[in-house]
């Protein structure tokens, strides 16, 4: 997970996700595993998705580091399952 912040903007990180085709060509369906074990899904623009090897990563806004290697992030859009942009995910420091 790499921070890609710039001086002006809030720090962003890339979190590991699963993907499948989106409804529109410009997007993909993205499945995000939460630290609770639940998986949530959103549609995200191709520009904020990145493939590294066989793995896909979603760019999200980093809000807060939590105990036990958890991270509170702000998703680019609401998840269907939670109707929320807030998500707590597991992470490993870069």
């Amino acid at each position: 997970m790499n921070e890609v912040t710039t001086e002006r903007f809030a720090p962003t990180v890339w979190i590991k996700v699963r993907i499948s085709n989106g409804m529109f060509n410009s997007e993909k369906a993205v499945y995000i595993p939460l630290s609770s074990g639940v998986e949530i899904s959103i549609f995200a623009d191709n520009s904020i998705l990145n493939k590294k090897g066989n793995d896909w990563y979603l760019q999200v806004t980093k809000i807060k580091e939590c105990p036990d290697n958890k991270l509170l992030v702000l998703l680019p859009t609401e998840a269907f399952e939670t109707s929320s942009r807030w998500a707590e995910v597991n992470y490993k420091a870069a």
Partner: peptide
């Protein structure tokens, strides 16, 4: 919407 994979279902 409580069920997982709604995005995939819609696609």
């Amino acid at each position: 919407l409580r069920k997982p994979g709604i995005a995939h279902f819609l696609h």
